[in-house]
Design a protein around this nucleic acid. Structure first.
Lengths: 261, 261
DNA sequence: GCCCAATTGTACGCATAGCGTACAAGGAGA
DNA sequence: TCTCCTTGTACGCTATGCGTACAATTGGGC
């Protein structure tokens, strides 16, 4: 009696469901009972139990005394192959490190995944306050400097399709939430040739980003500088930091050009 | 006709198999054809194809022109909840950063997962050469300073059981490969109260590690300093670095004591 | 250019793996 | 003690996932 959208032949339901169970755990809710997992995944309790038992047997989760499940470091294996197999982080990391050190800014590498920007690396300047964003963190692409640098390379049609799917969160009073506004900002990126974000994610924080390309011209990701200093004008950020960022991006691109891709 | 080891009621076969497919990808082999995945996982080609189609539809993998699959950043979601939900890295990171900065050494946080030490954080000193070990990397516990710091806390029976399961790789001529030798080294850790590793993983690299504990006394993980300098004597490493490491570990432990765990 | 080898896509029939409902058992809190 | 909520178990059903077998495609070697 449930809506029968045949999920397509060759689709393994149990794998999809099991992965959903893993993702039911978040930093907010790191320990979940079977019932809560069922709630979050909208699967039957019996099914969730089976998945959790399976994951436990495979060493991905443990059960505490209270009967709640927690993820174990084994889950890192699932993502680690990706991180360590990518040439991109290998190439970009030293550049981020250098930028962070010499300019006293944070410097990050991000890639687009769906409508999110995912951080693949993050270099922090000496003495930087601790940040909630680390490798693996996600932010909506259209609200980030890195994301807009990438979105600006899309055709209007692609961009519309992207924004259609994307969800908007107002992180600060400066966050652009209207689709029209977001499109305007992205158009500015196209015109100016760089992506500047002014306090749309964190108050007082500006970010400057450029896209990274493979030889084919395909976008590989984006590199970004972030600085917290409420006193500095956005225009000053561009004046002081665009040139070194451009140079780093150019060096990275020329290295990427050597790759088969 | 295949050996029928009933995998236990309530075990979801397809989830286990699907996760195995994800792990078929490694940094060595980041792009795999269906046939190669089948080879590595020892599953039928038809089954692998179904899993890969499923993963593709869910956005975890893509297929390139040559028909080979690659992982996408979406897989990071599977491990990320773990990393960001753990209090341990949050607490330890600033200490590692500080140690790395002031002592000019690398400083890492690791936890035990099965017979592996998994790096949950890694702080590198300024200008450090780039390293193959990063967050998520694994090394056999019994061959690492961090691992031995943890193994030293086990009972002899537990230790034996651990070494039974563990596999040994000779990374350098200094790597202890005999079980007896490994046990001797671990006993030394117990006697001395610290774990010192001399070039067993990388030539010229010494590491010094201490265990970290929850209030209950249960081991939370291990913190480690690593330094590359062939000229320095192991004894000098202890003389110069044990005290600051001890202090950091003590501070971390007192913070951990505040946690519910 | 042709052929062989290897790989991939598709079809299909079978069985069992996984499903959800329903009920029993256990625990915590009032 | 009683109640509410959660978890574990049992069970019967069928859709789900299985592997074999065959067709289509690709790519390299000669």
């Amino acid at each position: 009696m449930t809506a029968r959208v045949p999920p397509d032949r060759d689709f393994v339901q149990s794998l999809g469901r099991g992965l959903a169970v893993i993702q039911a755990f978040t930093d907010q809710q790191p320990a979940l009972s079977i019932a809560r997992v069922a709630e979050r995944t909208r699967l039957s309790r019996a099914a969730c139990r089976r998945f959790l038992v399976t994951l436990e047997r495979l060493g991905y989760v443990v059960r505490d005394e209270a009967g709640r499940y927690r993820l174990l470091p084994a889950v890192l294996r699932l993502g680690y192959a990706y991180l360590s197999s990518q040439e991109l982080p290998q190439i970009v990391r030293p550049h981020c490190d250098r930028l962070a050190k010499t300019l006293h800014v944070s410097s990050s590498l991000g890639v687009l995944d769906g409508t999110d920007i995912v951080f693949l690396y993050r270099a922090l300047p000496r003495g930087y306050l601790h940040t909630r964003l680390g490798v693996g963190s996600r932010l909506p692409a259209h609200s980030t400097a890195m994301g807009r640098a990438i979105l600006a390379e899309m055709s209007d049609a692609e961009l519309d399709a992207h924004l259609e799917r994307a969800e908007t969160v107002a992180y600060t009073p400066f966050t652009a939430t209207e689709t029209a506004t977001i499109k305007t900002r992205i158009k500015q990126v196209r015109e100016l040739g760089y992506s500047l974000l002014d306090q749309e994610i964190d108050l007082g924080v500006r970010a400057l980003a450029l896209p990274l390309r493979y030889r084919s011209g395909k976008i590989a990701g984006s590199i970004c500088l972030g600085l917290y200093d409420p006193r500095i004008e956005p225009a000053t950020v561009v004046r002081d930091y665009l040139r070194p960022l451009r140079q780093a991006a150019a060096e990275i691109n020329s290295t990427l050009a050597l790759l088969p891709s």
